[in-house]
Amino acid sequence: MSASESSFDETVIDDPGARALFWVLFPVLGAGLGWVVQWAAGWVADLPVAPLQGVFRAIDEAPDPQAALVAVGAGLVVGLVVAVLAVADMLVIRFAVGEVTLTRGGKKQSVSRGDVTGVFFDRNELVLLGRSSTELAREKTDLSKQKVEAAFTGAGYPWLAGGDPHRDEFRIWTRIDDDLPGVAHGLLIDRAAALEKGKADEAAVLREQLLKLGFVVRDEKKKQYWRRDQRELA
């Protein structure tokens, strides 16, 4: 973990150790897996029944050492792709004068200091709370909670050590929930389907639409929980 200040008074919270580990670990594992596949190809091809036997038979019949080099090379490429995805999914937090920027998965979100009324961790998710109890940001992260807290408090952001002050307002969503307007209910139905299919980007977009309607959504154990924000009471 590093927290370093640049000449532009910018503080960056990142995990370069994990980033370096991903770049080394996944390619090595991929290359090793490629070697194992090439080594076991003959055994799998001779089994009475096995999936992809044609592929394994082709690998086994390919001449050495070319076959081994191709298998290891293919595994290395797969490992590099996994490393790229893993690194891109890491959260990076940048503090500049008057704002904080969260970058994760190619998505960059800047939030003005004056709009933030509280910051806290909800399990492994960093949450920035705004006026009227709405959520300005909610991002998963494996960054050190102690160092993230220290960075936010050092930058003058209000840290909520007790966690979400609105946690008791959340209620589990069900398909027969009759306390939601039709549009919000429909968005939650679509979001439940997106979560079930593992479409995280689509679920994030639907969550943003619900926020615009005044509904805050959090996920726990593949269940959606929602609450209204307080913009009508503000």
Rank of each mutant, 00 (worst) to 15 (best):
A3G: 15
E5P: 10
S6D: 13
F8E: 08
F8A: 05
F8I: 01
D9Y: 05
T11N: 09
D15N: 14
A18F: 00
W23I: 11
V24A: 13
L25Q: 03
L25E: 11
P27F: 09
L29F: 14
G30K: 08
G30I: 13
A31S: 04
L33E: 12
G34I: 02
W35A: 15
W39I: 05
R57I: 03
A58T: 03
I59Q: 11
E61S: 14
E61G: 13
A68P: 01
A71H: 04
V72L: 07
V72E: 03
V72Y: 07
V72K: 07
G75N: 04
G75C: 07
V77E: 09
L80H: 11
L80Q: 08
V82T: 13
V84Q: 08
V92D: 05
R94W: 09
F95V: 07
G98P: 05
G98D: 10
G98E: 08
G106N: 10
V111P: 00
S112F: 01
S112I: 00
G114K: 00
G114Y: 00
V116F: 11
F121Y: 02
N124G: 09
V127Q: 01
G130W: 09
T134P: 07
A137T: 10
T141D: 04
K145E: 06
K145I: 03
Q146L: 08
A150T: 08
Y157H: 02
P158K: 00
W159Q: 14
W159A: 15
L160M: 13
A161I: 14
G162F: 12
H166P: 00
H166M: 02
R167T: 15
I172K: 13
I172M: 12
T174S: 11
R175P: 12
D178G: 04
D178Q: 12
P181G: 02
A184G: 08
I189K: 06
D190M: 04
R191C: 10
L195H: 11
G198T: 14
K199S: 14
D201N: 14
E202D: 13
A203D: 02
V205W: 07
L206K: 11
L206D: 07
L211D: 10
G214K: 12
F215T: 07
F215M: 08
F215Q: 00
K223T: 12
Q224D: 10
Y225E: 15
R227N: 13
R228F: 02
L233C: 03
A234P: 01
